[in-house]
């Protein structure tokens, strides 16, 4: 089941440039939260801080407090690998492992985390592919086709299945549909809507309609700061901040 996220005083840097300024945000469990804002506003950096992906970039660092359920992400005893195991991530561009079959792609996280039972693995792969709404399309070529041979939209759903297979509690999605055609995008959106039953979903998007369609809550980022965070309806109809209003009415960015 999904868990909530509590972010307090989160700062992030790339080298000497500060890209996030003390972000506070409480993400509700089992809901979809969207993060919007113009490019370069720090929205991608923000979600990458939630599962400590940010620090995999050379010279990048983050400070502050992030609690996912009971887990203290930046606590002294916390292990980034463990954090990422429990918080799934889907990236902007579909990135299946090119030399692996569809099955192996989904099973990759399980295998590499030391999961050996073949029968249970089959179950988990099937379940993840069903959850990602890809099962029907690929069930006959699980081992025959490589992940890279699928279409863009299928690849992205494969990446979602891959993230779901390790049973995360939170799913982070960094502009998951930005590289996809409209039909694939709508499939991914349906999927997000279904996934919130089981997972807490945080989705970064530059597409405001998408945020409005899939998310219950929306946060607006500008120049590394969280300007406004509220129910999606409120953000898009009666924003409290002038800058939010400017952005959603297309007056800049």
């Amino acid at each position: 089941m999904g868990v909530g996220i509590e972010v307090r005083g989160l700062n992030a840097w790339y080298g000497k440039n500060q890209s996030l300024n003390s972000i506070d945000m409480t993400v509700a469990a089992n809901h979809v939260t969207a993060v919007i804002g113009p490019s370069g506003c720090g929205k991608s950096t923000y979600v990458r801080c939630l599962n400590r992906m940010h620090e995999t970039i050379p010279e990048a660092r983050a400070e502050g407090s992030v609690k996912v359920g009971e887990m203290d992400v930046y606590g002294s005893g916390s292990d980034p690998v463990e954090v990422r195991r429990r918080i799934g991530m889907v990236f902007q561009k579909p990135n299946p492992f090119p030399t692996m079959s569809i099955y192996d792609n989904v099973a990759a996280g399980l295998k590499l985390n030391g999961f050996r039972n073949r029968k249970q693995m089959d179950e988990l792969v099937e379940r993840s592919l069903k959850l990602a709404a890809l099962w029907e399309e690929v069930k006959d070529s699980l081992h025959k086709k490589s992940g890279a041979s699928l279409s863009g939209g299928q690849q992205q759903r494969l990446c979602i299945a891959r993230a779901l297979a390790v049973e995360p509690e939170v799913l982070l999605m960094d502009e998951p549909a930005s590289a996809l055609d409209p039909i694939s995008t709508s499939k991914i959106e349906e999927l997000i809507f279904q996934l919130k039953q089981h997972y807490t979903v945080v989705i970064v998007t530059h597409n405001m309609q998408q945020a409005a369609r899939v998310a219950e809550f929306t946060g607006f980022f500008l120049m590394g700061s969280l300007i406004e965070y509220d129910k999606t309806e409120k953000i898009f109809t009666t924003p409290a901040d002038k800058r939010t209003e400017d952005y959603i009415t297309g007056r800049f960015g």
Partner: peptide, 9 residues
């Protein structure tokens, strides 16, 4: 690589 890190590998 990011995909793999993201899976907690």
């Amino acid at each position: 690589r990011e995909a793999a890190y993201g899976l907690g590998i």
